[in-house]
């Protein structure tokens, strides 16, 4: 029996996101029905239920929505920042603001994305980090060249 819609095709959205980061591209899914850009990656739009999600380059620009300092002991590496970044395209993501003391990160500060690569037991993992926008950071290929 034919179903009303085709099932999701291709690699899983998590893997696709990783693959783009590995190529130096910070891309998020954009719903072609309602135009919302979404994070985290998934197979349907959480705003409208649409299925047609296209990977768009995003600007990498964002604002610190909230921030905390995890007070890890000095002997274990010292304190570090954990922040929620609101991206210019709408969605929020957890990350870390670098290049500034963990407790000097302020809500409302403009930040810019950078892709970093970490070695993990399972292999490389690409993650998105942020620097203060004033610091003139770069590193996201095609940053600002996103569609729409």
């Amino acid at each position: 029996m034919q179903s009303a819609v085709d099932t999701f095709q291709g690699d899983g959205p998590d893997r696709e996101f990783q693959n783009y980061l590995g190529r130096g591209e910070f891309r998020l899914q954009q719903c072609q029905a309602c135009n919302e850009t979404i994070f985290y990656p998934r197979v349907l739009c959480p705003h409208c239920g649409g299925f047609d999600l296209q990977w768009r380059l995003v600007s990498g620009e964002g604002v610190v929505y909230s921030t905390t300092v995890v007070r890890r002991r000095e002997e274990k590496g010292g304190p570090y920042n954990v922040a929620i970044i609101e991206l210019a395209e709408g969605p929020r993501m957890m990350s870390r603001v670098e290049g500034i003391a963990a407790d000097k990160v302020n809500i409302g500060s403009a930040v810019k994305a950078r892709i970093a690569t970490e070695s993990q037991p399972q292999g490389e993992r690409h993650i998105v980090l942020f620097d203060l926008a004033e610091a003139g950071s770069s590193g996201v290929a095609n940053a600002g060249g996103g569609a729409g």
């Binding site: 922040a83 957890m94 970490e118």
Partner: peptide
């Protein structure tokens, strides 16, 4: 990847906001 302490860092983020 960002190692928030579970669950306190999430509550800390809400508190800070």
């Amino acid at each position: 990847p960002y190692a928030p302490r579970y669950p306190i860092s999430s509550y800390a983020l809400a508190t800070a906001r």
